[in-house]
Design a protein around this nucleic acid. Structure first.
Length: 887
RNA sequence: GGGCGAUUAGCUCAGUUGGUUAGAGCACUACCUUGACAUGGUAGGGGUCACAGGUUCGAGUCCUGUAUCGCCCACCA
C-alpha cells in the first residue's frame, strides 16, 4: 500500500469497475423494495458547477446508502434540451461563422443543434461520472429523444382534448433578444433605479384654465400606443375631466377618458395613461372599457410604423428621442428618481417587454387542486418543511402557464389546422388528413413548447410512459427529489400536477431543497461574476471524495453554502487520515502474518468496549441523520468518530497490545480494529465512494470482484457482538481519558506530578467505581483551576504547595494555600441545591405525565430519561463534594 | 407591498424536542522529525450567543418587539 494517497490513480479505475459490474443498474425483475430517484436533468449546454456538485452528491449519497440497505435502486439520469438556452448557444456559434439562423431555415438549424448536442452535449454527463454519481446510465434519457417526445405529445393531446390548453391573445413576457414569449417564472424581477417621467397631455375643452393634464410613466416610449387616460372614479380632483378632449402628444391622437378603480389616486398624479398593448394592467383596463389596443413595437424591440416618426428605432433609443422631443415641446413637467422591479429574461437577461400576442396556455387551476391536497396532507413532504408554505402560496394563486415559445429548438406544438375547412386539433404523430373534411393540406403550429413542458413529465416519461411497463409500475412513485429552491415553481410544482394528471399519483414522496452555493462574500456563483469555483478543478487539485465530503461538512440542512478553495482541505485531510489509519492496521496485520484475528469477549478491555459503544452510537446517529436528510450531521458524526474516537483514542490505546508480547491480545485487538474499520468504511462509502472502495479492497474485506456498495449497511455489527458495552464501562473510559489529559496538563504547565493508574479499580459494571473516577476528575479539575488562579495573581505554585496524586481508588489532594476550599464548597453546594430543586421539579412533572395527564409513552420515557440524568448529575456532584479536602 | 432566512470565537459555520462549564474547521500561541499520519500530534488563548423585554426552577434554544444583512414572490403606472 502506498504511503501517500493518490486519488487520481484510483478514482477513474473504480468508476470503470462499478460500470463493468453493472453496479448502478436496477430493474423491476430483480424484485425487492424499490428506491428511485430521478435526476434534475441538467441542461445539455451545461457544465458542472458547484450547485450541480452539491445537488448530485446529495442524491448519490441517498442512492448508495439505500443500495447498501438492500433496496432495489434506480437513479434515473439524463439531460434537458433546454430550448432557449441551447438555441442561444448554437446561434452564437453560428454567428461566429457569420450565419444567422434565418439563413439556414428551420430544418437545417434544428439539424445543427442536434449536431452540436452530439459533439458537446455529453460534457456534463462525463463530469457527473467524475464526481462519482451512481446513475443507472443504461437508462440515460434526453428530453428530446423519441420516447420523451412521444410522452410530450401524449400529454399535450390529453390536455388539449380536455379543454385545458387554449390559445389566447394576452400580454406575455416577451424577450426581444430571444424573440420569444416567456412564462411568468422565466421573467426575473430585478430592482432597478429608474425614472418616473411626468408628461403633459394637452386637453382641449376642459374647465376654466385647464390646458393640460399630467400623467406619470416609467416607459415614455409606450405612450405612442396610448388609447386612453384613466382616473379613479372617486378622485375629486379630476371630476371635470370626463367628457373633455385629451390629446396624445406628438401623434395628436384623441384619447378616451375612462374611470377605473385600478387607478391609485395617491400614485403619481392620479392619472394613468392606458396602453393596452404594452402593459398587463392597461390590457385589463382596456378590456373592461372596450378599447382597441395599439401595438407600436416589433418583436425585436424596434418601434413599428404605428410609432410614427419613431418607426425603426430601438425601444430605448426611442425613449431618449421621445424625451428630447417632449422636452422641446415643453411637455415634460418633471423627472424623478424611481425604483422599480423590471422583468429580465432568465436566459439572456435582456429587459422583458410586455407584449400582446397570441400564445398557448395551460389552464392551471384544475391541475393544481390535487397537487395542493397532496402536499397539505403530507403525501408529498418538503424538507426543510418551510418550503411547504412557499409552494402552497404559489399553487393557491397559480396563473395560467404560457407554454408556447417562438423558437425552433424544442417540441413542436402538435396542433394542426386544416387549410380546407379550418378545423384545428391536437394530434399524436403526424396526421395525414383532416379528421373532419379529410383534406390533406394541413398546417402545423410554428411554435415549440416551453422546455419545462417536457421536464414536468420526467418522473414517468423516463420510464417509458405512456406505455405502462413493469419498471414504471415498480419504481413509480419515486422516492426523493433533490433540488434547489429556485426550481420549486418551474419544476417541482408542475411535476406534482403532472403526476396526478397523467399517472393519478404523486411523482415522489419527499422533496429535499438544498441551499444555494455562494462565494465567500455571499454572492451567487456565476460565470459573469467570475467568482465560481470549478468542481472539476477541485477534483483535480484534491479529489472527488474531498469535494463531496467537504460539501457535506459545510452544507447545513437547507442553508446556503459559502465556499472558498481552502474549504476543501477538510475533506482532503480527512481522506488522508483514513488512509493512514488503514495503513496502520494493515501494517500490524502483515506483522501478524496469516494468523487469525478474532474479537474475543474474554479479552475485551474497557477501551474495546468504549470504541464499540461509540461505534454503535455513530451508526445510529449516522443512519438517523440520513433518514432525516441531515447530511451535515451524518458527516460530522463520522468525522468526529473516525478522527476523535477511532484514531486519536482507540488506535493509540491499542498500541499497548499491538506492540506487546501477548499474542492472543494482539490478535484480538487487531480483530477489533479490523471490525470497527470495516464499519467505518461502509458508513463513509455513500459520502466518499472512491477511497472507501479502494480501502475495502486493500483491507480484503470482501472478494476482489465485489464492491463495497454491495456490502451491508452496518446495523448489527455481528463481528463485535462479543464485546459488552456497559454504560458504566464506557463512562469509565471517558473519565480515564479525562484524567490522563488533566494529569498531563498539570504536569506540563505547573510541574505538579500526578500518577494516573489507568487500570485501577476497573470492574465492569461497577457503578461505584465509575462514580469515584468521576469524582477524581472533578478534583483534578479543581487543582488545575486553583493553580491557574494562582498564576494569575503571580504566585506560581510549587510542588510543595499543591500536589495531586491519583492512587488506588482515590485522589488524595492537598491544596494547601492554593485554593479557597470554602468558596469552592459553597459554589458546589449552591449548584447542588439547584440540582435538587431541578430533580424535584422533574419528578413532579414525571408523576404528572404518568398519573394525571396520562401522556403518551414517548413523552413519559423522555421525562424518565431526564430524571435519570439529573439523578446522575446529583451523584457526581455529591462525590465531588465528598472528595473535597477539609479546609 | 407580502413572505422567508440569517445574526454564536479573528474568519466560515454547527448547536434536533429548553438542561452541568456553548462546539468544530481554518487562523493564532507553545512544544513535539514518538513506531499510521507534519494533509500530523499534545496543550493552550479567544465568545456579554445582534439588541430590548417576556415565559420558565433553568433560554443560544420558546414568545413579543427592534436593528442590520440576504433571499423569494408581487401587474402601482
Amino acid at each position: 500500500m502506498d504511503k501517500r494517497y493518490d486519488p487520481k490513480r484510483i478514482e477513474a479505475a473504480w468508476y470503470d469497475f462499478w460500470l463493468k459490474k453493472g453496479q448502478f443498474h436496477g430493474e423491476a425483475a430483480q424484485g425487492g423494495e424499490p428506491y428511485c430517484v430521478v435526476i434534475p436533468p441538467p441542461n445539455v449546454t451545461g457544465i458542472l458547477h458547484m450547485g450541480h456538485a452539491l445537488n448530485n452528491t446529495l442524491q448519490d449519497i441517498l442512492v448508495r446508502w439505500r443500495k447498501m440497505q438492500g433496496r432495489n435502486v434506480v437513479w434515473m439520469p439524463g439531460t434537458d434540451h433546454a430550448g432557449i438556452a441551447t438555441q442561444n448557444v448554437v446561434e452564437r456559434a453560428l454567428r461566429k461563422e457569420g450565419i444567422h439562423r434565418e439563413q439556414l431555415g428551420r430544418e437545417a438549424f434544428v439539424e445543427r443543434v442536434w449536431q452540436w448536442r452530439e459533439e458537446y452535449g455529453g460534457t456534463i454527463i462525463r463530469q457527473l461520472k467524475r464526481l462519482g454519481c451512481a446513475c443507472d446510465w443504461e437508462r440515460e434519457r434526453f428530453t428530446m429523444d423519441a420516447g420523451l417526445s412521444e410522452a410530450v405529445q401524449e400529454a399535450f393531446v390529453r390536455l388539449f382534448d380536455k379543454g385545458l390548453i387554449y390559445r389566447g391573445n394576452y400580454i406575455v413576457n416577451w424577450c426581444p433578444r430571444c424573440h420569444t414569449a416567456l412564462s411568468d417564472e422565466e421573467s426575473e424581477h430585478r430592482e432597478l433605479d429608474g425614472k418616473l417621467y411626468y408628461i403633459r397631455y394637452p386637453v382641449e375643452n376642459a374647465g376654466a384654465g385647464t390646458t393640460h393634464i399630467v400623467v406619470a410613466t416609467t416607459r415614455p416610449e409606450t405612450l405612442l400606443g396610448d388609447v386612453a387616460v384613466a382616473i379613479n372614479p372617486r378622485d375629486e380632483r379630476y371630476r371635470g375631466l370626463k367628457g373633455s378632449r385629451v390629446r396624445l402628444p406628438i401623434l395628436g391622437r384623441e384619447l378616451a377618458v375612462i374611470e377605473d378603480d385600478f387607478v391609485d389616486p395617491a400614485f403619481g398624479t392620479g392619472i394613468v395613461k392606458v396602453t393596452p398593448a404594452h402593459d398587463p394592467n392597461d390590457f385589463d383596463m382596456g378590456r373592461r372599457h372596450g378599447l382597441e389596443p395599439i401595438d407600436v413595437m416589433h418583436g425585436d424591440g424596434r418601434m413599428n410604423d404605428l410609432a410614427g416618426p419613431y418607426a425603426g428605432l430601438d425601444r430605448f433609443e426611442c425613449r431618449k428621442r421621445i424625451l428630447v422631443d417632449l422636452t422641446e415641446a415643453g411637455l415634460v413637467e418633471k423627472i424623478v428618481d424611481h425604483k422599480h422591479a423590471v422583468g429580465h429574461c432568465y436566459r439572456c437577461h435582456t429587459v422583458v417587454e410586455p407584449r400582446l400576442c397570441p400564445q398557448w396556455f395551460v389552464r392551471m387551476k384544475p391541475l393544481a387542486a390535487p397537487a395542493i391536497e397532496a402536499v397539505k396532507d403530507g403525501r408529498v413532504a418538503f424538507v426543510p418543511s418551510r418550503w411547504t408554505k412557499v409552494y402552497l402560496d404559489w399553487m393557491e394563486n397559480i396563473r395560467d402557464w404560457c407554454i408556447s415559445r417562438q423558437i425552433w429548438w424544442g417540441h413542436r406544438i402538435p396542433v394542426f389546422t386544416c387549410e380546407a375547412c379550418g378545423h384545428e386539433w391536437a394530434a399524436r404523430g403526424t396526421p395525414a388528413a383532416c379528421p373532419k373534411c379529410g383534406d390533406a393540406k394541413l398546417k402545423q403550429d410554428e411554435d415549440v413548447l416551453d422546455t419545462w413542458f417536457s421536464s414536468w413529465l420526467w418522473p414517468f416519461s423516463t420510464f417509458g410512459w405512456p406505455a405502462r411497463n413493469e419498471d414504471l409500475k415498480f419504481y413509480y412513485p419515486t422516492h426523493d427529489l433533490t433540488t434547489a429552491s429556485e426550481i420549486i415553481f418551474f419544476w417541482v410544482a408542475r411535476m406534482i400536477m403532472a403526476g396526478f394528471e397523467f399517472m393519478g399519483d404523486i411523482p415522489f414522496r419527499t422533496v429535499y431543497i438544498h441551499g444555494t452555493v455562494r462565494d465567500e462574500q455571499g454572492r451567487k456563483m456565476s460565470k459573469s461574476l467570475g467568482n465560481s469555483i470549478d468542481p472539476i478543478g477541485i477534483i483535480e487539485e484534491f479529489s472527488a471524495d474531498s469535494l463531496r465530503f467537504s460539501l457535506m461538512m459545510i452544507a447545513a440542512t437547507g442553508q446556503d453554502v459559502y465556499l472558498s478553495n481552502d474549504k476543501f482541505e477538510i475533506g482532503r485531510n480527512f481522506g488522508t487520515k483514513l488512509w493512514n489509519a488503514a495503513r496502520f492496521i494493515l501494517m500490524h496485520a502483515e506483522k501478524a502474518g496469516g494468523e487469525r484475528t478474532e474479537c474475543r469477549a474474554d479479552l475485551a478491555t474497557p477501551d474495546d468496549a468504549h470504541i464499540v459503544a461509540r461505534l454503535r452510537q455513530a451508526v445510529d446517529e449516522c443512519t438517523e441523520s440520513l433518514e432525516r436528510y441531515r447530511f451535515n450531521d451524518a458527516a460530522r458524526t463520522l468525522y468526529e468518530f473516525v478522527w476523535g474516537q477511532f484514531c486519536d483514542r482507540y488506535l493509540e490505546s491499542a498500541k499497548d497490545a499491538l506492540y506487546g508480547a501477548d499474542d492472543a491480545r494482539r490478535l484480538h485487538t487487531l480483530g477489533v480494529l479490523r471490525e470497527v474499520f470495516s464499519a467505518v468504511l461502509r458508513l463513509l462509502h455513500p459520502m466518499m465512494p472512491f477511497i472507501t472502495e479502494e480501502l475495502w479492497h486493500a483491507m480484503s474485506y470482501g472478494a476482489d470482484d465485489e464492491s463495497i456498495m454491495t456490502a451491508p449497511w452496518p446495523t448489527e455489527l455481528t463481528g463485535l457482538s462479543g464485546i459488552v458495552t456497559d454504560p458504566a464501562v464506557v463512562r469509565y473510559v471517558e473519565d480515564k481519558h479525562e484524567l490522563i489529559r488533566l494529569g498531563r496538563s498539570l504536569k506540563a504547565d505547573y510541574g505538579i506530578a500526578t500518577t494516573v493508574e489507568t487500570d485501577y479499580l476497573f470492574h465492569p459494571g461497577s457503578e461505584d467505581a465509575a462514580a469515584r473516577v468521576t469524582a477524581d476528575v472533578a478534583s483534578l479539575k479543581i487543582a488545575l483551576k486553583a493553580a491557574k488562579l494562582d498564576v494569575a495573581t503571580d504566585a506560581r505554585p510549587t510542588r510543595g504547595m499543591a500536589s495531586a496524586v491519583c492512587a488506588l481508588g482515590t485522589v488524595a489532594m492537598r491544596l494547601e494555600g492554593v485554593i479557597d476550599i470554602d468558596a469552592e464548597r459553597k459554589r458546589l453546594l449552591t449548584q447542588l441545591a439547584k440540582i435538587v430543586a431541578d430533580q424535584e421539579n422533574c419528578n413532579r412533572k414525571l408523576a404528572n405525565h404518568e398519573f394525571v395527564t396520562r401522556a403518551p409513552a414517548g413523552i413519559v420515557e423522555r421525562q424518565r430519561a431526564s430524571s435519570r440524568e439529573i439523578e446522575e448529575k446529583r451523584r457526581k456532584l455529591e462525590h465531588t463534594l465528598a472528595a473535597l479536602p477539609q479546609a
